[in-house]
Write a protein that binds this DNA or RNA. Structure first.
Lengths: 417, 417
DNA sequence: TTTGTTTGTTCGACCGCTGAACCAACATGC
DNA sequence: GCATGTTGGTTCAGCGGTCGAACAAACAAA
């Protein structure tokens, strides 16, 4: 009960910067006495401070309480297909420091781990005076419950047996949380980006892999076995190219980075002379630049990708009905060239009431979304369980024994407290 | 706090028929004193009774507590496309009485309402000595939040302006809950059928309409605008027949009852002589019977439907990753003839890890699933908020004012208490 | 200066849970 | 039959936590 009210007040202070005790009491339904008591604890720890008084509305001026955003920091790390990056943020998702490092992730686990550790050490050293709440990590792989936190075998064969979370926890002595990159993108957009205010939302990341992160009631939804949101393997064209997952005509095999560049190369074979943009190594960025410059081949590839994405997202809209879909990944830099055919395909394939109730926007967080979401994982946990944030008193071990349904195999009740 | 513990104990007693106070204390983590106190209240109301003592395990024999399943009853009503039906159940989902009545629902709202009211009156009269908790109603229409509980205009134009819930509440003076039929099917399967033990599950109903009900963490998931689970409008064949929703090649336009029978008629035009089963009015049942009897045309239609369903369900698996998919509606009576091509399509179109982690089963509840789920809606509410179940003491009005995010547009926190 | 309003704190009261003690009802061993 | 041990349920004092009321603080308005 005390724990619950403590979390409630901390969240309220976090949300409403500069709220007074009296307003807190009104908003939470608690009495002013209780609010004063609990807030007093916050002031002692330093997590919350007192502003100057706000203007009076006819009586004693209220003392504005301030969540101390810089009281703790958080580290978020993104493991990409070809890079590792990381950020150090304050408790309001503001990036204070960051690193980015190209890296052959799938091929060289040892070097990758070294790069991550070096990056984290750098972020830790950035400001040793502020403790770090923990490290969040986003990985470009589904994380089935059965895999115990390891990367998927078929995508990262050489990573077999490596326990990322355990490694980071031991190496840096702070709490560590790991999740899928698209899930973290969704979380980041919900807290800091285009998803604010939408409890049910989806984030679709189009990069080397194509995946969706689904937020339901403001929380990452993982599904029964932990792999929900695998939009990348929606069947778009049964006669399409073979996908690395073993199926054919998957969305990822048509709009993923590798597939897109492969298609570009195939199309360019018959083009003579080879356009200038295609003489260097092909990248999604160069493809987009060429399309913006008017190159017909590049344009067609991107509008085609938009169409394919639209077909897959129509299913997402119909089935999950998110309040908003946020689109991330480098391909989104194509802008309207991608979005227009996408929206057309959407409106042709999804129920109008679903399309109407939803919005499709491009991620404002860009390529920091995943790392930011990784950090947010720890912020969310800390605000829901202030014990994580406030100075550690030894918690009484919860004596709760989980239900065992000996009799009627009963439905699931959510058990709070 | 007291309310929470009361609900916790009531749920535990409901789940574990015949549990003792001491076991309750161990299972819930509460003290035996508190358990005795709260259980005492249950005994006074009559919601819980005491069995004979159970065999001793060396000490004083425990008194087994029994949830009184027959203490209150619930009424669940299904509004179908061409019928209305209803059940009266006890608090363990056992059907005590039922009615079924053919009815042109879309065409004649007045007669339909009269039929529902008559059916409910019959169920109420079945046993006047046991109070009814309330009435649940399942409707064959999505219920967008914007529609305020009314049926969809484009499916039920003549129902415009009719407030079903309000009507039932006024007519029968009990609490009323309304939800989509597929959602209720999912709920029923979770509590009483093939979905027991699966917190994340989907129920797909193939009838006049085709819809999915999605349960997430044991609760009906409605999406941002209330229409999640619209699997019926997955695009299967862009060149396919036009659907009543305005799109083309929807699943519903290929495997819905009307579409299936229409296709049967088209195929039969070229068959001479007309097979015996096709001479009377076509129904899904007669089609299935013919297929089982070996008729090639009927067989092909059903396997085709299975394939189409498989394609759509592959998306469901990949995106939502339910622990189990339960299949309902009359078409399921085709059994393996439907399931085999469905499973084949699934394995060709869905990620293996998704298929592997999930099971596809046919609804054991059959055509009572929706009405049963409607009743379950009230049972679930009562077990989560025992105030609904126990004799009504005037509840103190909750003084909680909802958060208004005046400052930072913050993420959503779930607020319990 | 007076009056009224709003904020924040203090304090007694009360609600609800807990642990320990106690009684009740059995099994076991002699 | 009796003593002992064990387990179940109840009673009761104690305590953590919240609340309402009273009060002081700090302002605006008249």
């Amino acid at each position: 009960m005390r724990a619950h009210n403590t979390a409630l007040l901390l969240q309220a202070i976090w949300c409403e910067q500069g709220i007074s005790r009296a307003d807190l009491a009104r908003r939470t339904g608690l009495s002013r006495a209780t609010v004063s008591d609990i807030v007093g604890g916050f002031l002692l720890t330093g997590a919350v401070g007192e502003y100057e008084a706000a203007p009076s509305s006819g009586g004693r001026p209220p003392i504005r309480l301030r969540f101390e955003n810089g009281w703790r920091h958080i580290i978020g790390v993104e493991l990409g297909a070809s890079h590792v990056s990381g950020v150090r943020t304050d408790l309001r998702g503001r990036v204070l420091a960051s690193f980015q490092h190209p890296q052959d992730v799938a091929g060289n686990p040892t070097a990758t781990l070294a790069a991550i550790d070096a990056g984290i050490r750098g972020l830790l050293a950035y400001d040793a005076s502020v403790p770090v709440l923990g490290i969040g990590l986003g990985v470009p792989s589904p994380l089935p419950i059965s895999s115990q936190g390891g990367l998927a075998h078929h995508l990262f064969p050489s990573w077999q047996g490596i326990q990322l979370a355990t490694h980071l926890k031991l190496a840096h002595s702070v709490p560590v949380e790991v999740d899928n990159d698209a899930n973290l993108g969704a979380l980041a957009e919900h807290w800091w980006g285009a998803g604010r205010g939408f409890a049910d939302l989806a984030y679709v990341k189009v990069a080397t892999g194509v995946g969706a992160g689904i937020l339901i009631r403001g929380r990452i939804y993982k599904g029964a076995t932990g792999i929900a949101g695998e939009i990348g393997h929606t069947a778009i064209d049964p006669d399409g190219p073979r996908c690395r997952c073993g199926l054919s005509g998957c969305l990822e095999a048509m709009v993923g980075t590798a597939a897109l560049l492969q298609r570009a190369r195939e199309q360019l074979v018959s083009v003579q002379p080879l356009p200038e943009w295609a003489r260097d190594e092909l990248t999604v960025q160069s493809l987009i630049a060429a399309a913006h410059a008017g190159d017909a081949t590049a344009r067609l590839l991107i509008t085609g990708a938009g169409q394919a994405l639209g077909v897959a997202m129509a299913n997402l809209l119909n089935l999950v009905n998110p309040g908003r879909i946020v689109l991330g990944g480098h391909l989104t830099e194509a802008g309207a060239m991608l979005l227009d055919p996408l929206r057309t395909a959407l409106s042709e394939r999804a129920l109008w009431s679903s399309v109407e109730g939803s919005e499709l926007v491009i991620s404002p967080l860009g390529d920091q979304a995943v790392a930011l979401g990784a950090a947010t994982l720890l912020l969310q946990a800390a605000l829901e369980d202030p014990q994580r944030l406030l100075p550690q008193q030894p918690r009484p071990a919860a004596p709760l024994v989980p239900f065992i349904h000996a009799g009627h195999p009963a439905p699931t009740f959510e058990r709070s407290i």
